[in-house]
Design a protein around this nucleic acid. Structure first.
Lengths: 154, 154
DNA sequence: TATTGTTATACTCTATAACTATA
DNA sequence: TATAGTTATAGAGTATAACAATA
């Protein structure tokens, strides 16, 4: 016979426990919770990390291009990138061939910080990978890429 | 799920294109974007839908119990549940055996609305499923459940 | 002492409108 | 006309502190 548990009994989620949207949301929060402290040590948000990564891989790209790639509105991108410039992580240089746009590049400090962030991210990914098991982890990436590619801005 | 045309040349995402956290985030936004309009027609948020579902499956559960199950802080749960009560979707009855707590149940209107929401959710899930293919979709749920269960409150 | 529900509040994220200077 | 960047602002969503009533 089952006895009443001392801790609170979890409630029934019903159809939510196999709802892809609900599961994606909770899984994303759990995964972010794992890497958040490592990023916070460097005073960096997940969005900051993504921006630094994209600038590193696309030096000279314009603000709106970087913002749109990451699904960040250009209007919300301004304070984010300005803060990084103020921290000496990013260089904003007026483009010569299109004087409306600002070309983004990493400073040496930005590059050094990004190296630390990549290391932290790799350790984080290994934790997630070993939590799931390599096979299950690997099988996860492709479908997520297919879903993620839908949300690309027009 | 409708695919948006790509106007601009996409920048290189570097390691982000296989970063589980980044992919989970973008995938979650894409999937939510698909169901959001259907829910909005009923003036319901994803959180609202989840709350109604859990109350339906656990009639008489207390506020904090429902909130904690869904990872919502009890303090943020108050305006949410009060709005549902005001809309006539939820009944908040003082518990007899613990006069601190408020037992939650659905009204007939809440039940009727939830039926519509479940239908919309089912149609949404079918869109996602056919976008990914059944096999890939099915292979996605278990790892997501494993990840999502990490964030369950202790 | 601990827990349930509550208020007030602040902070982050995200969204919209409107502007400028360039193209 | 359209685009890159900007400002101001409003709305969500989420977080903490503190409290009253009850256990």
């Amino acid at each position: 016979m089952t006895q009443f548990p001392e801790v609170m009994m979890a409630l029934d989620l019903g159809p939510l426990d196999s709802h892809v949207g609900y599961l994606l949301r909770r899984a994303q929060l759990a995964v972010f919770a794992d890497i958040l402290p490592s990023l916070a040590e460097h005073d960096v948000s997940p969005a900051d990390y993504a921006v630094l990564t994209v600038i590193d891989r696309n030096p000279g790209a314009g603000q709106s291009q970087v913002a749109e790639t990451l699904g960040i509105q250009k209007t919300n991108f301004v304070p984010l990138i300005r803060r990084m410039e103020a921290r000496g992580l990013v260089l904003r240089t007026p483009s010569a061939r299109d004087r409306r746009s600002v070309a983004l590049t990493l400073t040496p400090q930005g590059n050094a910080l990004l190296a630390d962030l990549h290391a932290a991210a790799q350790a984080h990914i290994e934790r997630v990978r070993s939590h799931l098991g390599s096979a299950e982890y690997d099988s996860l990436l492709e479908p997520l890429q297919r879903l993620a590619s839908v949300s690309r801005p027009s």
